[in-house]
Amino acid sequence: MILNLVRNEALYGYAIVRELKERGGLVAGEGTVYPVLRRLEADGLVSSAWSDEGPAGPRKYYRITAEGRAFRERALTEWETVAGAMDELGGKGDR
């Protein structure tokens, strides 16, 4: 979900948290987003850069990398396969 958010534009941590909240994608505390961001960055799926434009201090902006895009595509394909299989099973169950 985070990769989805940063695929078109660079976003900073708090903006990502806000977006996730609005879309109902934040099921635990806000602090849980940062461990995921750090891991995505360490795995090279997102890149980051500091910017001084924030009102409360420097913001760290995240942007998806080529590796991140490829990973996202793979994850979406897998998800569609699983979702398709579930639909089929559901359909058979209905009949």
Partner: peptide, 12 residues
């Protein structure tokens, strides 16, 4: 990490 969380908290 601390700097990033600090910015988040102050902004919020």
């Amino acid at each position: 990490t601390i700097e990033e969380i600090r910015t988040h908290l102050y902004e919020e």
